[in-house]
């Protein structure tokens, strides 16, 4: 200890002289880092390009329409008429909200069931089922919704219109009274089908957050003689609030972007309305899918602009969701 061989230029004046470890990477490591970084930058650029290209290609239409693009509800760009997303946007939101109203409670129950209630075997099966629910193509849900669910669901639509008509969303004005033929292809039916696609997204997020609820508190509540519901209410749910909100928002983003199932079910309407039960609905994504093949260059430019609006909205919703979720996740820790 007597011979302190100090390297030149590093006077040890105080102990707080912080050392910066010198890392010289080998050639292979430099290449490795280079490749990994390149891949990441590519991903980065790709994302930027999506917005850029939609903006560039949608610019023509946006210039013509100006701000009226957000307030105009007709869609006739190819006929030289006015066009805008003012009808599609509310419909898109309505469909997404219907989907969420169904999906969030179901997802919440499923997530709680998996983390808190289910016997082990059932837990494994149910987790697999939820994964499968996410893997089934939306096209398939659309087909099922159109051919199987819709004919059955409109009975419920009619019942709601008849008995709950005083709720603004359920009001169906028809001077001849309600008949079953009034209810297919509605926002409601589309929303119910979309909810199937939202359930797994919400469930996965909620389950993950719930399972991180501190075991100590959980057992503490149990040891005090709490019922299972008590534990859920006092420990799991408060802890998982971020996950519930974030998961729901992720679901919202997914629901607003859902295309094919909605396209199959709705019959396009260009007048926004409050009621969700009767025929006629729309969504930006469905509009693009339906109008694409019959549009001219300018029409496609208008569709690009609509796509841009959808893109920006889902981006904002999702960014907000990720922030909420990541805040409620605990970080990894190093064990020494």
């Amino acid at each position: 200890m007597s011979e302190n061989i100090l390297s030149e230029g590093t006077p040890v004046t105080s102990t707080s002289d912080v050392l910066t470890p010198v890392v010289r990477r080998s050639r292979a490591d430099q290449i490795f880092r280079g490749i990994a970084t390149t891949a990441s930058v590519t991903t980065f650029i790709l994302m930027g390009l999506i917005g850029t290209f939609l903006l560039v290609k949608g610019y023509d239409a946006l210039r013509v329409a100006g701000w009226s693009f957000l307030t105009e509800s007709a869609w006739a760009p190819d006929q030289g008429g006015a066009f805008g997303v003012a009808a599609m946007l509310p419909y898109t939101v309505q469909i997404a909200l219907v989907a969420l109203v169904i999906a969030v409670p179901v997802a919440l129950c499923t997530a709680l069931f998996i983390t808190e209630y289910a016997p082990r075997k059932l837990r494994r099966i149910l987790t697999a089922m939820i994964d499968l629910l996410a893997a089934v193509p939306s096209l398939i849900y659309g087909l099922w919704g159109l051919f199987y669910l819709q004919p059955r669901l409109i009975t419920l639509s009619k019942w709601m219109a008849d008995h709950l008509g005083w709720v603004p969303f359920f009001t169906v004005d028809d001077q001849y009274g309600t008949s079953l033929g009034l209810f297919p292809s509605s926002t409601f039916v589309a929303g119910v089908v979309v909810s199937l696609m939202v359930i797994p997204i919400c469930t996965v997020v909620m389950r993950e957050v719930f399972s991180q609820a501190p075991a100590g508190e959980r057992e503490g509540a149990m040891a005090l003689g709490g019922t299972r519901w008590g534990v859920v209410r006092d420990v799991v749910l408060p802890f998982g609030r971020g996950g519930i909100i974030g998961g729901s928002m992720l679901g919202l983003g997914r629901a607003m972007g859902e295309t094919i199932a909605v396209t199959l079910i709705i019959s396009p309407s260009f007048d926004a309305k409050w009621s969700i039960l009767d025929q006629g609905s729309n969504s930006i994504a469905a509009l693009i899918a339906l109008k694409f093949s019959e549009s001219s260059t300018f029409g496609i430019s208008a569709l690009m602009a609509a796509g841009l609006v959808l893109f920006v909205i889902t981006l904002i919703v999702n960014a907000a969701a990720s922030t909420v979720v990541s805040k409620s996740r605990s970080g990894a820790s190093t064990e020494i």
Binding site: N4, I5, V12, T15, S16, L19, P21
Partner: peptide, 12 residues
């Protein structure tokens, strides 16, 4: 972070 010096056979 750290400060100080660690030598192996006299080499930092």
């Amino acid at each position: 972070t750290l400060a100080g010096e660690i030598l192996i056979d006299g080499v930092d």
